[in-house]
Structure formats: C-alpha cells, structure tokens
Computed example of a mutant assay.
Amino acid sequence: MSDAPITQDLVTIPRKLPEGGKINLVGLTRAGLRDALLAMGTPEKQVKMRVNQVWQWVYFWGVRDFDSMTNLAKDYRAKLDATFEIALPEIVSKQVSADGTRKYLVRIAGGHEVETVYIPEEDRGTLCVSSQVGCTLTCSFCHTGTQKLVRNLTAGEIVGQIMLARDDLGEWPEPGTGTGEQGPRLLSNIVLMGMGEPLYNFDNVRDAMKIAMDHEGLSMSRRRITLSTSGVVPEIAKCAEEIGCLMAVSFHATTDEVRNKLVPINKRWNIATLLDALREYPRLSNSERITFEYVMLKDVNDSDEDARRLVRLIAGIPAKINLIPFNEWPGSPYERSDWSRIERFADIVYKAGYASPIRTPRGEDIMAACGQLKSATERSRKSRKEIEAEVRSG
C-alpha cells in the first residue's frame, strides 16, 4: 500500500472574489500578507513593519475596516481599502443549548454551509471548528458522515470560524488593552473535530492554525489546539512537524473487523499501521500524549474484552482515552451503551494506568454534540427515510 499523501479533486475558492475583485486578508499567512502588500506597492523597506501593523489590527484587535487602523497614514489606508477586504463567513443562525453550548450555522463562499460549536466549561471555552463541507469518510456512527463531501474550506474560512465566535462572545480586547487584562479567555481552546477530516485538507488547516497560534494575533497556544483525525496515516508525521498541535484519533474499535465498519478508512490504514504512526507523534510534535476518542456503542465495541484489548493495543503510547456516550441522530443504526457498561469500561482502562474520562454529552438538544453536526439545509432536504437509506447503503 502506498504511503503517498492522499489527494482529492476538490476546488478551493480563490482568495480574489469576483465582486469588487478585492483580496480577503483573512486566511493569508504572514508570508502571504507580505507578498500581497508588496504587490500593492508597499516599499520593501517598510513591508515588515506594515505586515506587523495590519496583522495586529486584523487578528489581535479584530478590526474589520481599514479606517480604524489609526497608526497607518490615511493614504496608505485608502490603498489597503481599494485592494483588500477583511471578510468572515456569515453566521446564518445561532442556537443556544440549555447547557450553554452555542451552535452556529455558518455560510461560506458558494452558499455552502458548515457548523461550528462553542462549548463553555468552568475552566475553558472550546470551539469545535469544521474543515470541510460535508465529509468523505462515511463513518457509520456519525451524522456528518451521511452528508457527501462538497469541498475543502479555505484557510480564511477555517480561521474565520474562530473570529466570528469571538465576535459573538464579545472577546476582542479594547484598544490599548491586552487579552489577559479582561480575565480568563472565553475561547481558550480549539478542536478540529467539526465537519470534515482535517488531514484531507492539510495545507489550509496548517495555514489557519499557524495564524491562530501567532503570538501577535489570536495567540492560541499549540497545546490548546487539538486536531482530530480518523487515521490519515501519511499526514500524521507532517502534522507533527508543520503544526505541532495536540493529536486526537477517532479510534472507536479494537479489531480491524469492527473498525472497518465504524471507520471505513481503516480498510486503507489498519489499526496496526495507525498505531505505528501514533507512537512517533508525541516525540515529533513535543506533545505530551495522544487522545484516543472512543464512542460507546451498545453491544458493538463496549465489552470488557474490548477494554482490555484497547489497553494492550496502546501499550507504550502516552495516551488518554476519551469515552464518548453515543449521541443519537435520526436514522442511526446504533444505540448508546448503558451507563453502567460505560463506567465498567472506563474502570478497566483506568486501572490499567490510563486516564479514561467519560465525556458529558453537550448540546444534544440542538444537535450540537459529537457526531451530530450537519448543515441545516442539507438536513432539511432529506427525509428520515432517506437518511436511514443512506445509513443502510453505507
């Protein structure tokens, strides 16, 4: 089997938009911004300073108009305004769960939609970010997997989800103050666990996370960013080297027979191949440990023997195991494991020396929980029978 990177015939929307012909600054890396400012006519000797100034206005202060960039000369601001725009995806709707979880339906270029979820907790606020419209993986327990893949998100559409959430939370610092002067950050963590497989959109995800981690902008710590993959093995080492964030893997089974059904990418890179790649990740990325995501499905993967086999499989890998009670959705062929069964599974894993927290389901009342995301328009186009037929055929 070839370990060559996977390529997909997906269209990426160009940065230059047809209406007005302006280039969107959101999503440009520092190098990209430098090239764009030079092309606009910024003198070479000034460009480093101008990049820093514009970068801070866009990503630290959250400014959307060039007139507000008061440390730039008026004529330079006019040139910026004539050449560029600062545009985010559009929030079509927002739902707020009884537990405080916020789910945003976000419209991107081409009229496509993705979902972004903000989960408030006592010690953190986590944003679940999407990287693709739909998903190519068709994991049988996942609602998102029943929506066909449309295209990759651009770097601007990915980082734009972080920015629009900060808009909604009112978390941009006041001019002249720092983010730490207004108390703990409401949006402190990012998980690339929304719609799509992040490692099938590697370049755009990498650029977006580099922007998010830049200390003069959004300033998200790489240790507070977690990328979740279903197991795109050739890209795992690349992720360690070029992004360096924490890694989570959608594991969900302890035999190839079961994982082939739950996570079909396992037919290409089986459990042994995946684990070999994961053993190297903490060293390559200087990360503390791998998180193994494990959805608890009644009578499918939740036996005592599964728990013991899981412990044997991950031996030698610094790890924690997140046990996820299955979040049901219309037409799903699975049921959530009984709570006593989940606790028994967790106890076996814990006694073997691994942290095994049971994730509290969040946002279930607004279909915002893990595995439930799907664009509202796509959901509304299909009847329950159609969804069930897709599950059976998949």
Rank of each mutant, 00 (worst) to 15 (best):
V311G: 06
D306F: 02
V311P: 07
P325H: 10
N322D: 06
K320C: 12
S303L: 06
S303C: 12
V300F: 12
R312F: 11
G316A: 08
D304G: 09
V311A: 05
P318N: 11
V300N: 10
A307R: 05
V300P: 08
K298T: 14
D306T: 02
L297K: 14
R312E: 15
D302I: 10
N322F: 06
I317D: 01
I321H: 02
K298W: 15
F326E: 06
L310C: 03
K298L: 14
R308G: 06
A307W: 03
R308H: 12
F326P: 03
L323M: 10
I321Q: 05
G316R: 07
E305R: 04
N301M: 12
N322L: 08
V311K: 03
S303T: 15
L310A: 04
N301E: 12
L323A: 08
R312T: 12
L323W: 01
K320L: 15
V311L: 06
G316W: 03
P318W: 07
I314A: 02
K320G: 08
I324S: 00
K298A: 15
R309I: 02
D302E: 13
D304M: 11
R309F: 01
F326V: 00
I317F: 01
I321N: 02
N301S: 13
D304L: 11
F326G: 01
V311W: 07
R309K: 15
G316V: 01
I324H: 05
I317K: 01
I314Q: 00
S303P: 08
L310V: 00
I321S: 05
D306C: 12
A307V: 07
D302N: 13
L323F: 00
L313V: 03
L323N: 04
F326M: 05
K320I: 13
N301W: 10
I317H: 07
R312S: 14
N301L: 10
P325K: 04
V311D: 07
I314T: 00
K320F: 11
L310P: 03
G316I: 04
I317G: 00
A319W: 01
P318L: 10
L310W: 02
S303W: 10
F326S: 04
R312M: 12
A315G: 06
I314H: 01
K298S: 14
A319Q: 04
L297M: 14
L313Q: 03
A307M: 13
I321Y: 00
L310I: 04
K320A: 08
N301Q: 13
R312L: 10
A307Y: 10
L313S: 06
N322T: 09
D306N: 15
R308S: 09
A307Q: 08
D306E: 10
I324G: 06
K320Q: 15
D304A: 15
L323K: 02
D306M: 07
L310E: 04
A319H: 02
L313W: 05
P318K: 11
K320T: 11
A315Q: 14
L313R: 00
N301G: 13
S303R: 11
I321V: 15
L313F: 07
A319N: 07
R308Q: 13
A315K: 09
D304F: 08
V311N: 04
P325L: 05
D302V: 11
L310M: 09
F326L: 09
